[in-house]
Design a protein around this nucleic acid. Structure first.
Lengths: 144, 144
DNA sequence: TATTGTTATACTCTATAACTATA
DNA sequence: TATAGTTATAGAGTATAACAATA
């Protein structure tokens, strides 16, 4: 059966995630992806755009676009680094931190609902498997 | 950690799959996705384009485009159904069947390599989990 | 009128290339 | 010269809308 193919399953599982996330995140005025970016900014305080891009596995031009909209909405700030003014120090604003707090509860609800069809005993292994696949082929991350 | 988010994991696992598939499938002159379409055509002999689209979870216009290139390459045939000439009966040509045979070995190798970082005891559960997620939110399939 | 398929178009996501400024 | 960031552009992939043929 074509539908049993791993690629098909992964793609549609991801589409299922996106669909649910679009619903759940509508209430907080940001996408799950944007919240992921904010979370990474919080994680790596004082990181440059290029560092962020590498960590999130996107191109630096994509990063610039993402940050542009986040900055316009007052969620992040970009300040040139004094010791190397080519670099921007990216950090969360107060609003950014607040959004991230709301994100946490949305995400908890999302995860609960999204993972609910998986046997509880298999949920941890499911995450582990995804991690293993990504690590095994880390070329897919850090596009450059 | 932002990278622990389910959406991020699913997305990058899928990107990892796509990257590996692009390499492995290069040799047979078709993409993994195209082979999936061929497999579904073989599965549902005599299906219309609309039926195929629903099964594969794509739009009928996307289906038309996919079939267009497959037909041009002599892998599938589209013949109006005699009893309802609005519908096309889609089926595999000899070349289509041959490609599908080559696909099988490529896919076996792919799956082995792609799933290798997962604990062997967890591999079946991994597939099951993906199925469960998709079934649970079947709105993500059959776009319409 | 409704359905199937096609075509034209547009949107999203993402990357490549060219540019600016800094180093 | 090399690096960080920006901007313009282009390519996938996919969908919506309008259309033709058929029912």
């Amino acid at each position: 059966m074509a539908l049993d193919r791993i690629g098909f399953l992964l793609k549609h599982a991801y589409l299922a995630y996106e669909g649910l996330a679009a619903e759940k995140y509508e209430a907080i005025g940001a996408t799950a992806r944007e919240c992921g970016v904010l979370a990474q900014i919080q994680e790596v305080v004082g990181g440059s755009q290029l560092e962020l891009a590498a960590e999130l596995g996107v191109d630096r031009t994509t990063m610039a676009q993402l940050l542009e909209t986040l900055e316009q909405r007052g969620l992040v700030s970009r300040v040139p680094l004094s010791t190397d003014r080519r670099k921007n120090v990216v950090s969360l604003t107060t609003d950014g931190h607040e959004l991230l707090a709301r994100d946490r509860s949305v995400r908890e609800e999302m995860d609960r609902e999204f993972l609910s069809p998986i046997d509880p005993r298999d949920r941890a292994a499911f995450r582990t498997a995804l991690h293993a696949i990504i690590d095994n082929r880390s070329g897919s991350l850090g596009t450059r």
